[in-house]
Computed example of a mutant assay.
Amino acid sequence: MARRFDCSDLEQRTVGVMEAAAAVRRGELVVLPTDTVYGIGADAFTPAAVTALLDAKGRGREMPPPVLVGTVRAATALIDDLGPYGQDLIDAFWPGPLTLVCKANRALSWDLGETKGTVAVRMPLHPVALDLLKETGPMAVSSANRSGAPAATTAEEAQEQLGDSVEVYLDGGKTTDNTPSTILDLTTAVPRLLRRGAIPVEKLRGIIGYVATED
């Protein structure tokens, strides 16, 4: 039976984060608020948990989930190479709604799906998410909705879609902005925009100069 914790109450938030962290360590799924929309998360290093996450969403391995981290150090441990622009982007926009696609550390033993040797990583600007991530370490996190359905902006919306496939719901209230994160690919010589989102391209260009776009 899924449990939901009201994170506006300090005691419930403390207990909820601990219960969610314990669930993640057991290979179970949790829902957490982020600075964009609610996310459904699992331990990034437990392949069965990542598979359960994709199943809960109705999504295949061809769409691997991004990884959320609670610290920059945790992110750099996952990445083989930040390239010439990665650190400047992290300094400017993390924590925040910028997802960076980088070459993954080949020494890591994990299976996020068909990643082609890359990892999409982000540090969210949300206190509940950061509290949880600092307890769990890197988590595979995708938007908390069934594939093709609107992204959840409340814990209630997430629970309506995902039900008992999730062990713990951390309710941080309605998200203030449902614009998804901007996704930038750093695996090519020129940074390439994969998804327009909360951080405009102009701001990215203000930090690193040229960014390739589809249009």
Rank of each mutant, 00 (worst) to 15 (best):
G117Y: 01
P66T: 04
P84R: 13
T118G: 08
Q87M: 11
L29F: 03
K134G: 06
V128M: 01
G96K: 08
M139R: 09
R13L: 15
A75H: 08
V190I: 15
G16M: 01
Y85D: 11
G60Y: 11
Q87E: 14
T153S: 11
I40M: 11
R13S: 10
G173H: 08
L112R: 03
A149F: 14
I40P: 03
L10P: 10
V128Y: 03
T46S: 14
V67T: 01
Q12C: 07
C7M: 00
T153F: 07
I208G: 08
K103A: 13
G117K: 03
V211A: 06
S143C: 00
A189R: 14
M18F: 12
V50M: 03
P47K: 03
V37R: 11
P150G: 01
G137E: 09
G206Q: 03
E135K: 15
G96F: 06
P191S: 04
P95A: 03
I40G: 03
A23G: 02
G209Y: 00
A129G: 10
I208E: 07
E28T: 02
I183W: 02
V190R: 13
D43I: 00
W94C: 07
V119H: 01
D171M: 01
I207P: 01
I79G: 00
L162Y: 00
G86E: 06
A21P: 08
V31L: 05
N178D: 15
L100T: 10
G209L: 07
I183V: 15
G137K: 12
T179P: 05
P180W: 02
P64L: 09
L78R: 09
T76H: 11
R73W: 04
K174F: 07
V211T: 08
T34I: 06
S181M: 09
R146Y: 02
V119R: 14
A49M: 03
A2V: 12
T187W: 12
V101Q: 07
D185G: 01
V15I: 15
L29R: 04
V17H: 00
R3Q: 14
F45H: 02
L82Q: 08
T154A: 01
V166K: 12
S181C: 11
G117P: 08
V17T: 10
L184K: 05
M139N: 06
D164C: 02
P64T: 06
L204E: 10
Q87T: 14
Y85I: 04
A92K: 11
A21E: 00
A198C: 09
D215Y: 14
G70C: 05
L112E: 09
G137D: 06
G39A: 15
Y85T: 10
A23P: 08
L53A: 00
R26I: 09
L193W: 00
F45G: 02
R192V: 10
C7I: 11
P138R: 05
F5M: 13
Q87P: 05
P47N: 09
D9Q: 12
W94R: 13
D9G: 04
P127Y: 12
R3P: 04
I183P: 04
D215V: 12
T187H: 10
P150S: 05
T182D: 14
E202D: 15
D91N: 14
E214A: 15
T175W: 03
V166C: 11
R73Q: 13
D81R: 07
I208H: 03
P97C: 10
V31M: 04
P191K: 01
A158F: 05
V30S: 09
A189W: 06
K57R: 15
T99E: 02
T175R: 15
G148M: 02
L89K: 02
